[in-house]
């Protein structure tokens, strides 16, 4: 520990960031104190960690969720003080002790959740492996017992095609898995098709549709569904919580002719900002103010005149 610290300090000094390292030193001490404090308290709370995998258009993420049981109910852990670390496990290189294989660290949000977005570089590197195991863990938290959770994912792939004509617009998705050095179609898997919306996916086609023998599922798009203002719509195909593939989704933006209802402009209205007051209001009030205050200033000028007369006479 001391060695580490000296090393670190030395490096820091070399970079000339003394102030940062001072903060760092303080942090280290505080951290150390907190941990030793925690070690005294033997009774720590235990928490349940769930880990899920998601691949969306080729980018991967791992979601970690932490809950604990209070009176037979699960509630979100929102006071975890230490970050959760995510490791990529591959035969030998994973070693939490010295940090090898660490993908990232993350403080969970207030809902007890956190999402590790796997960075592009790592993503590219692990793509060739076709089988990935991730380990999420945290340790030495002052409140919670250490926890570790592992998730293994088999490689899969969804392709999405779209056939758009005037009267019928069809989306077709195919699910593949990696088997013996090639992608082969998966039959009988629940593959959902939908249209991407702000918060969720609007389902299209039969609900609960499964892939046929060639791994395909098709659905017609509702023709009156509004797209974006630049005439596009995004189709999504996905599998949810598949036991070996996890969550996998792909999306595709296609041209679309149905425009959304225009957003009403606020314009010059009573409920607009001051700069956008209705012209009638602005001009009428300005003219009233001008007339009345013009007269008031005239009256004040009369006072000045009275004063002037008073001076002239006395002199």
């Amino acid at each position: 520990m001391k060695n580490n610290f000296m090393n670190h300090l030395f490096k820091k000094l070399r970079h000339g960031t003394i102030s940062v390292s001072l903060i760092t030193v303080t942090c280290l001490f505080i951290n150390k104190e907190a941990i030793s404090q925690a070690e005294k308290d033997s009774a720590k709370l235990s928490a349940t960690m769930t880990v899920s995998y998601k691949a969306s258009n080729g980018s991967r993420s791992i979601k970690v969720n932490l809950k604990r049981k209070v009176e037979k109910k699960f509630i979100a852990v929102d006071n975890l003080k230490t970050p959760v670390s995510l490791y990529f496990k591959s035969v030998k290189e994973h070693n939490p002790a010295d940090g090898t294989g660490l993908v990232g660290k993350l403080y969970l949000g207030k809902d007890g959740e956190g999402v590790f977005e796997i960075p592009d570089d790592i993503n590219k590197l692990i793509s060739g492996l076709h089988k990935y195991t991730f380990i999420a863990k945290f340790d030495a938290d002052p409140i919670y017992e250490d926890a570790e959770e592992e998730i293994s994912i088999a490689d899969s792939k969804i392709t999405l095609s779209y056939l758009g004509e005037d009267s019928i617009k069809t989306a077709t998705a195919t699910l593949y898995e990696w088997k013996d050095s090639a992608y082969v179609p998966v039959a009988g898997a629940e593959l959902k098709l939908g249209i991407k919306r702000t918060f969720s996916i609007f389902p299209i086609g039969e609900s609960g549709a499964v892939t046929d023998s060639s791994g395909k599922v098709s659905a017609d798009l509702p023709l009156d569904m509004p797209g974006t203002f630049d005439r596009k719509i995004t189709i999504v195909a996905k599998i949810d919580e598949h036991e070996s593939f996890g969550n996998v989704e792909v999306s595709k933006e296609v041209p679309w002719s149905v425009l959304p209802e225009p957003i009403p402009e606020i314009g010059r209205a009573l409920w607009a900002t001051g700069d956008n007051a209705p012209y009638v209001l602005v001009f009428s009030s300005l003219s009233i103010i001008a007339v009345i205050w013009g007269t008031i200033f005239y009256l004040i000028s009369l006072l000045i005149k009275i004063r002037k007369i008073g001076r002239d006479k006395s002199s």
């Binding site: 009345i292 007269t295 005239y298 009256l299 009369l302 006072l303 005149k305 009275i306 004063r307 007369i309 008073g310 001076r311 006479k313 006395s314």
Partner: peptide, 24 residues
């Protein structure tokens, strides 16, 4: 008193001002 000298000019100004003010 603004140097009020009881002069007719001042008086006329006051009368005028009162009329304007009363209307307004």
């Amino acid at each position: 008193s603004l140097g009020w000298k009881y002069s007719p000019e001042q008086y006329h100004i006051v009368k005028k001002a009162i009329t304007i003010l009363s209307v307004m």
